[in-house]
């Protein structure tokens, strides 16, 4: 590996700025949280994550933050994805492959309709706040 200079590091950051901004939650009211525990990764959560990133790019959606978390406890339906949107209930979707990820963006985030055939859970009422964790 060639020794990187600070100038090269600055350039690299600028190149990756857009990808970094997608992970930032500042000033964003919508969140997509992807379960990236070992169970999720084994079931293809990395592909799900990159599909979400590219679909948001394609659709030019800027108000959604994508973050990752560990296992959500639903290992039998991995990859799992939690979607938090204002004015909609927080939902955990299961078995989210690349096609389902596209469907979630189109129907849930843009269309404001739940993707009912992949809905597996809502976070237990005793661990979420009254406002759904927003």
């Amino acid at each position: 590996m060639a020794k990187m200079t600070l100038e090269e590091l600055r350039k690299l950051r600028e190149e990756k700025q857009e990808a970094l901004e997608k992970r930032s939650i500042e000033g964003k009211d919508c969140r997509i949280i992807i379960g990236m525990g070992t169970c999720g990764i084994a079931a293809g959560a990395k592909e799900t994550l990159s599909t979400f990133l590219s679909v948001l790019d394609e659709e030019k959606i800027k108000h959604v933050a994508i973050t990752q978390t560990g296992c959500m406890g639903l290992c039998y339906v991995e990859p799992t994805v939690e979607v938090i949107l204002p004015d909609m209930p927080p939902v955990i979707y299961g078995k989210v492959d690349a096609d389902v990820a596209r469907k979630i963006v189109k129907e849930h985030i843009l269309g404001k309709r739940l993707v009912t055939d992949h809905m597996f859970d809502r976070p237990a009422a005793d661990i979420i706040k009254q406002d759904g964790g927003r």
């Binding site: 590996m1 060639a2 020794k3 990187m4 590091l9 690299l12 950051r13 990756k16």
Partner: peptide
């Protein structure tokens, strides 16, 4: 990115 930077210094 910081890790990548340090790794490049160390590897060189």
């Amino acid at each position: 990115l910081l890790k990548e930077y340090i790794a490049s210094q160390e590897a060189a």
